Simulated scan of single mutants.
Amino acid sequence: MRPVRNRIGVNILTEPIFLEPVFHQKIWGGRKLETDFGYTIPDGKIGELWAISAHPNGPNVIENGPLAGLTLDQAWADHQEYFGHQQGKVFPLLTKILDANDSLSVQVHPDDAYAKAHERPGELGKTECWYVIEADPGSYLIYGHHAKTREELAQMIHDGDWDDLLRKVPVKTGDFVYVPSGTIHALNKGIMVLETQQSSDTTYRLYDYDRVGADGKKRELHLQQSIDTTTVPSQDPKLDIQTEKRGDSTVTTFVTAPLSPFFSVYRIQLKGSLDFDREAPYTLVSVLAGNGTFEADGKSYPIKKGIHFIIPNQIEHWAFTGDMDIITSTPGKAEE
């Protein structure tokens, strides 16, 4: 199918962009992406589903419409009209589902400036956030630290003084956690999250429980990078979560500018039908529970738990109908 053109020859796209999932094996992964979400996943410990990604380490292939067969990074490069002619060489966001069957390494991510100076060309920094899909009773995160100075941080890391350094924060199903770059953090065993993040795959490990990889060796640590990039003293972002009742449905704003310059994230607890108008260049959508339809330009598309898609720039109005739990995100306006 060729793109439709309007009277002045501009390509228009009035259907959602559905994407083939990409799975990543992780030492801490499990099988919940299969048992809980119904994905057909590879054998082994599958820790991550990259649901909406243009990152070179796992770009999604577009399933439908005039862009079918292209990867999302190719679509971003060649069809900017569908994304509102945004500035930037790379698609700026990445949506994942993480299944922490075991605890992740304690880690920190760089900001854009550090990533630009020290990582591969085009790599962004990594601010991220989590919506907790499921958390076992008693679950907790590593979030932040107790060091007062960078010198104290370095000493505690080199001494392995993890009990005194790391903060443990309880977490439960339905929680939202914002993780700016520079924040020491880790998901722990028994937690599944939907992660919205900058399009980056740069992680600096400062502690990994002395685990060994498939080669029988302890996994690489990045102590100096961790010390360089960690925010000291630790800072907790001041979230202002807003909830709005719309009929029998609820729309929650988790985070937006100015606190979050890279993305805004929302939850739609849908019962019935809700209409929306475009307020951003494009919108990322993940269905976490239930089923229903997405309706735009006089057409209806069935959607259900485990479906992820992009609403392109040229869809001005749309509706969700059904009984669903949906997370949406939109790009921020920060310059790279």
Rank of each mutant, 00 (worst) to 15 (best):
T203H: 08
Q197R: 09
E151T: 09
D161Y: 12
D201W: 02
Y207V: 05
V132G: 01
D161K: 13
Q197S: 00
D208A: 03
Y207Q: 05
Y204P: 02
Y143N: 05
G182L: 00
N188V: 01
I133T: 07
V193R: 00
S200H: 01
S200W: 09
C129Q: 03
Y143A: 08
D164Q: 15
H146R: 15
L153T: 08
T202L: 01
S181A: 14
Y209E: 02
D159P: 13
V171Y: 03
D159Q: 14
G190V: 04
D136G: 12
E195F: 00
T173H: 10
K172H: 08
Y204N: 07
E152S: 09
E195S: 10
L194Q: 13
D210E: 12
L166I: 08
K189T: 14
D159S: 15
V179F: 05
D164W: 12
C129N: 04
Y207E: 05
D210P: 11
E128M: 07
L206Y: 06
L166S: 09
D175H: 10
V169D: 01
T196H: 12
V193L: 04
S199I: 11
Y207T: 03
G190S: 12
V179Q: 02
Y140V: 10
E195N: 03
T202I: 03
W162E: 12
P137R: 10
E152N: 06
E152T: 06
P137G: 12
N188P: 05
I142W: 02
T202K: 07
I191W: 00
